[in-house]
Design a protein around this nucleic acid. Structure first.
Length: 289
DNA sequence: AAAGGCATCAACCGCCAGGTT
DNA sequence: AAACCTGGCGGTTGATGCCTT
């Protein structure tokens, strides 16, 4: 029978988020901060499961998300971190300010693994597939799916992916046991970086298919008005003379920060013993982000 | 111009770990 | 100590748009 779903799926919206839903979520979090994802949808007037809200926020709506292409410096760092850490995307993302694990994972799968293979480099297929229980379960599940499934995805895509996987090395990789920090998360205080002024919400790429809320019938104007609290009142308004202005997002890219992050990992992994303790994040790096 | 293949990436799923009751 | 809850993670899927034939 399996595990109970995280929430009742009946009546829930699924699939791409509409701009209206984004606005509801972003505004709710601006006012009340992150957390309580389970109850958030109801309070925010969203017909989404909490998990979905969290994902949307973390991967897309957070004001600190860095948009645009992944640059060569970042790409290089991803490659090197992946060679050290394997498919531990959240850890890798934690070292790439403004990038999400999902983004890096996608970038790796669609660009980097191919690129490296082309260059004749051996691509590690996930260190996590080495010994962890989770990895074994996941691996078994994948096998089962390949064997049993006949009801998902278009066949051509499935074949493509299967072919892609064939010929990719699945050699066991022994994993260095390390204690690593949780990837940096951004606290609500960072909201001081002013969503409104920076137009983060309005800059959010709109779902192409979504035209208007009325057309989609997703969110009523009433819902919107109910949820759109006064940003100023919530304390997230950004005053011009506020010293916290310094926190405005200004992603460093050429100051060697990424290089330092990699160096840190590299040194740790080369240190003696099978357990090492990572130092806190280099100051003034992600803490300000 | 149409059809099929391919690439991309947002979103979903299931599981786990840690905290709380 | 056990059960439950929540947040977080990595793997996978599927919609969409682009490219090639």
């Amino acid at each position: 029978m399996g595990r109970a779903p995280c929430c009742p799926k009946v009546g829930m919206h699924r699939g791409p988020w509409s701009p209206g839903e984004d606005a509801l979520l972003a505004n709710y979090i601006q006012c009340h901060g992150e957390g309580n994802w389970r109850s958030l949808p109801k309070k925010a007037g969203l017909l989404r499961c909490g998990k979905s809200c969290r994902l949307r926020w973390m991967n897309y709506l957070r004001p600190d998300i860095k948009r645009g292409n992944i640059g060569p410096e970042e790409e290089d760092l991803i490659i090197r971190l992946h060679s050290l850490l394997g498919n531990r995307w959240s850890l890798i993302a934690g070292r790439l300010p403004g990038r999400t694990d999902n983004e890096i994972k996608n970038y790796w799968n669609s660009h980097l693994s191919k690129k490296l293979r082309k260059q004749g480099m051996e691509v590690r297929e996930g260190t996590s597939k080495g010994t962890s229980k989770r990895a074994r379960i996941s691996q078994k599940k994948s096998t089962d799916n390949v064997n049993n499934s006949n009801n998902h995805n278009s066949k051509s895509q499935q074949d493509k992916r299967k072919k892609k996987n064939e010929g990719e090395g699945t050699a066991e990789i022994t994993r260095t046991k390390i204690h690593v920090p949780k990837p940096t998360r951004f606290t609500p205080t960072l909201m001081n970086c002013n969503l409104i002024e920076n137009s983060s919400v309005s800059e959010i790429p709109k779902t192409e298919s979504a035209t208007s809320e009325e057309e989609k019938g997703d969110i009523s104007m009433e819902d919107l008005e109910m949820n759109l609290c006064d940003i100023k009142e919530c304390g997230f308004f950004f005053e011009e003379d506020d010293p916290s202005h310094a926190l405005a997002f200004d992603f460093p890219s050429k100051d060697g920060l990424l290089e330092r992050h990699f160096q840190e990992y590299y040194e740790l992994l080369n240190s003696e013993g099978d357990q090492v303790q990572l130092n806190p994040f280099p100051d003034q790096s992600l803490l300000l982000w």
